Simulated scan of single mutants.
Amino acid sequence: MTPTPHAPGADTEQRLTELEIKASYADDLLDTLNQLVARQQEQIDLLLREVGRLRQQGDPQAAPAVRNLRDELPPHY
Rank of each mutant, 00 (worst) to 15 (best):
T2D: 14
R67A: 07
E50S: 06
L30R: 11
E13A: 15
L16W: 05
D11G: 09
T17F: 07
E18C: 04
A23C: 13
P8C: 01
H6L: 14
L19A: 14
A65K: 12
A7K: 13
Q14I: 13
Q35W: 01
P75M: 00
D59Y: 01
E42N: 08
R39G: 00
A65N: 06
S24Q: 13
E72H: 08
Q41H: 04
Q57G: 03
V37R: 07
R70S: 07
I44Y: 02
R49K: 12
Y25Q: 13
Q40V: 02
D28A: 12
Q43Y: 02
L19H: 11
Q43I: 04
Q56C: 04
I44H: 03
V66T: 12
P5C: 12
L47P: 00
L48R: 08
R15C: 08
Q14Y: 12
Q43C: 03
N68K: 04
Q61H: 15
Y77V: 11
D31T: 08
T12V: 14
R15E: 13
P8I: 00
K22M: 04
E42P: 00
K22A: 09
G58M: 13
Y25V: 03
A26E: 05
T17H: 11
D71P: 00
V51D: 02
R55G: 04
G52N: 10
A10L: 12
K22P: 00
L29W: 04
I21R: 09
Q14T: 14
D59M: 01
Q43F: 02
L73S: 09
R53P: 00
T2I: 14
S24K: 08
L73N: 06
L69E: 04
L48A: 04
N68E: 04
A38Q: 10
A26W: 02
L69D: 04
P5S: 15
D31L: 09
L16F: 07
Q57Y: 04
R49S: 06
L54E: 02
A38M: 05
R55F: 02
L48F: 03
R55T: 03
H6P: 00
L33S: 04
S24R: 11
R70L: 09
K22D: 02
D11E: 15
E50F: 03
Y77D: 08
V37P: 00
A38N: 07
Y25W: 11
P60C: 03
Q56V: 01
Q40A: 07
H6K: 15
Q40N: 13
D27K: 08
D11C: 07
P5M: 13
Q40H: 09
V37L: 11
G58T: 05
E20M: 07
R15Q: 14
Q43V: 05
E13M: 09
A7N: 15
G58D: 08
L54D: 02
L73E: 06
D71L: 10
A63M: 06
G58P: 00
G9H: 12
D59S: 03
A62E: 07
R67N: 08
D59Q: 03
A7W: 11
L19T: 07
Q61N: 14
K22L: 06
L19R: 14
L46I: 07
L19K: 12
D28I: 05
Q61R: 15
V51L: 08
R55D: 02
L19Q: 15
T17S: 12
R55N: 11
R39D: 07
T12L: 11
Q43M: 06
L36P: 01
R67W: 08
